[in-house]
Design a binder for these strands. Structure first.
Lengths: 112, 112
DNA sequence: TCCATAATTCAACGATAGTTGAAATAAATG
DNA sequence: CATTTATTTCAACTATCGTTGAATTATGGA
């Protein structure tokens, strides 16, 4: 993964409104949520939300599909996971004992 | 974890220079690196690096200690892991089958 | 004590980001 | 085909960010 891609994705998440939307979509799971439903849940103007979704979308963190007159947004799990892996990559450089501090994280993340 | 804390940490990482520094420190491991050594490795002015380290530090992603006339920076693993966990939290809400897309991530992250 | 090295602080500048209101597009319904 | 609903686009404005140069603090050695 390129560092530019990583910063683009992190920037997309680095704002309260967008992070909140992102987490709503994480909670919603693979089925996703319609833009209008997100706007209601988050309590933000439609055009503001549209801009937020657009940024998350261009960063590759979410994707959209049309269903009737709604547009449904959902997480792009592969890209999300790519980003998280990027942040811990090379943390031990082959020396397994070096990054003990991170080892309990993987167990905490093993929610499924 | 509060959403404000999360956005602060993500903002700190959401810039190429700071992300590069952060990853150098991830590679360096718990012993960390002196500010001067980072500046040489990254090829950035001392004051620019200082500002970058300051932002990462205030975000809680790194910590510093003095050793002689050098100041050594290193990753705050606990806070780093807290952030990553926050991003995937509530991804399945008890339904184990929902977030299969994320399940292979934890294995990829199990570097140690 | 004086000097060199290591790193930070401060002010200022240009660049970029976030929100808002108004207008536009797209699809479904009568 | 006109209307309603859902969402996006555009332009404009303010606020915040990132880097730079100059000055400052802190430590170790001659």
């Amino acid at each position: 993964m390129e560092i530019k891609t990583a910063t683009q994705r992190l920037s997309a998440l680095a704002q309260e409104g967008r992070l909140f939307v992102f987490r709503e979509l994480v909670k919603a799971g693979p089925n996703g949520l319609a833009a209008g439903d997100i706007a209601k849940a988050v309590g933000v103007a439609a055009n503001t939300l549209s801009a937020q979704l657009n940024i998350l979308s261009h960063a590759g963190l979410i994707q959209s599909r049309r269903e009737g007159r709604s547009i449904i947004y959902s997480i792009q799990y592969h890209h999300m996971s790519e980003l998280l892996v990027y942040l811990v990559k090379d943390c031990c450089q082959g020396h397994e004992d070096i990054c003990g501090p991170l080892s309990d994280m993987t167990t905490k993340m093993a929610c499924c």
